Simulated assay, not measured.
Amino acid sequence: MKKYTSMRDLIMSTNKKIVITGGPGTGKTSIIDFLKENGHQCLLEISRQVTLEAQAQGIEQLFLTDPLLFSNKLLEGRINQHKESEILSGTIFFDRGIPDVVAYMDYAGDNYPSYFKEACLNYRYHQIFLLPPWEAIYTSDNERYENFEQATEIYHHLKKTYLDSGYELLEVPQGSISERANFVLNNLR
């Protein structure tokens, strides 16, 4: 059994799961990439992978064509990420968390099985950083179908879902990628 010399050593040795979330185009992935480039453990967003796999099969937007199938794939992938993170020590940053799946389903107005919300309660994170809409940096691309107004609406669903799941949220202010990443790092509990 490992002995700790102080409470700080004990706290610093534990596995901490930190989610960086927000609506589309708010800079989440840029912050995650910055953290990863600077030696931090990061688990990347999987929705682009699911979208690209569907596009390879001729389905342009799986989320629009079959939202439940898309969301089930995301939920499964995010649960797997959560489980995989258990073998890591230290702080692990997630580009989106399990509650994001519920928020997007609520945004779409689609029904989903109860195990979606149960997963939000069964697989917990230590801290959530929320990026608010920021029109100046918003861009659209092949995997992002939302316009800025829709991205803003998704942000509100994300905020509600995380709060409903019992999390406190810390909003990341606007700034350069390094300033935003440092805000996250400086506000870890």
Rank of each mutant, 00 (worst) to 15 (best):
20 I>T: 07
117 K>I: 04
8 R>Y: 04
79 I>Q: 11
89 S>H: 09
11 I>M: 10
186 N>E: 15
97 G>Y: 08
105 M>W: 02
39 G>P: 03
173 P>F: 10
188 L>V: 09
47 S>W: 02
105 M>S: 06
41 Q>L: 09
58 G>I: 12
125 Y>P: 08
90 G>E: 09
12 M>E: 14
164 D>Y: 00
63 F>M: 04
100 D>W: 05
95 D>C: 12
56 A>F: 02
118 E>N: 06
122 N>D: 13
100 D>G: 02
116 F>P: 12
55 Q>V: 06
91 T>W: 01
12 M>R: 15
72 N>D: 13
26 T>L: 03
123 Y>L: 05
132 P>A: 15
162 Y>S: 09
66 D>M: 02
95 D>S: 14
94 F>R: 04
99 P>F: 05
173 P>H: 07
87 I>N: 06
153 E>M: 11
49 Q>L: 10
179 E>Y: 09
74 L>R: 02
10 L>D: 07
163 L>F: 11
160 K>P: 07
92 I>D: 02
27 G>S: 02
133 P>Y: 08
177 I>H: 07
79 I>C: 01
73 K>N: 15
110 D>K: 15
41 Q>G: 04
122 N>E: 13
45 E>G: 14
24 P>Y: 07
120 C>N: 15
61 Q>R: 13
28 K>A: 02
143 E>W: 00
25 G>E: 00
15 N>S: 10
183 F>R: 01
74 L>I: 14
2 K>E: 14
